[in-house]
Amino acid sequence: MIRICYAQRKSTWNAYIYENLKVLRSKLAKQKRTQAFKIFPDKTLMEMAAQRPQTLDDLESIYGVGPKKLQRFGKIFLEALNNDL
């Protein structure tokens, strides 16, 4: 029973982080005048929310984060994740 409650809280927290990452991505997409999925796809945001990377190296290991996107958006997303959005 305790594990279920913890898992539910973790899932809720991940959903909160995921939704806030989507808002950040939308703002960046508007600034860059591009589509949001071109910043990072949903799958990447979900992994960020679940794994909560702490460094650029951690972030680079997530699906969809290559060298170019890491350079362009890595610090912005890490800052958001580390500041609990």
Rank of each mutant, 00 (worst) to 15 (best):
P41E: 15
F77C: 03
I2C: 01
L28M: 15
M48S: 06
D84H: 10
L24C: 03
N82H: 05
S11A: 13
A36V: 12
A49Q: 00
A50G: 01
S26E: 13
L81P: 03
S61H: 15
W13C: 04
Q31L: 15
Q31R: 12
L45Q: 02
R72E: 11
L24T: 00
K38V: 11
R33N: 10
E47F: 06
Q51E: 13
G64R: 08
T55K: 07
E47P: 02
T55N: 08
G66N: 11
W13E: 08
K43A: 06
Q54C: 09
Q54K: 15
L70Q: 14
L24S: 00
I4W: 01
E79T: 13
T55S: 14
M1L: 12
A7T: 07
K32Q: 14
E19L: 08
L21W: 05
V23D: 05
Y18W: 04
A50P: 00
G66R: 08
E47W: 03
L45F: 02
V65Y: 09
M48H: 07
R3V: 01
L45K: 01
N20L: 03
D84S: 11
L59P: 06
L21H: 04
Q71E: 12
K27Q: 12
I39F: 10
A80I: 04
T44A: 06
L28R: 15
I17N: 00
G64M: 15
P53F: 04
L45V: 04
E60Q: 10
T44E: 04
F73W: 13
K75F: 15
M1K: 10
R3Q: 04
E79Q: 14
P67E: 13
N20V: 01
A50I: 02
K75T: 13
A50L: 05
E19I: 06
R52N: 11
D57S: 11
A80C: 11
S11C: 13
Y16T: 10
K43N: 07
A15G: 03
R25V: 03
K38R: 13
T12A: 13
K27L: 12
I4K: 01
P67L: 10
L85H: 10
Q35E: 14
L81T: 05
N14D: 09
D84C: 11
L45P: 01
S26G: 14
L21F: 09
I4F: 02
E19S: 11
R3Y: 02
L59N: 06
L70E: 11
I76N: 04
R52A: 08
K43H: 07
I4C: 01
Q51P: 03
A15S: 09
L78E: 09
M46N: 05
K22Y: 10
I4D: 02
L59C: 08
S26V: 09
S26N: 15
K75M: 14
I17A: 00
C5L: 10
A29T: 05
R33S: 15
L28D: 09
M46S: 11
P67C: 09
Y63S: 10
R52D: 05
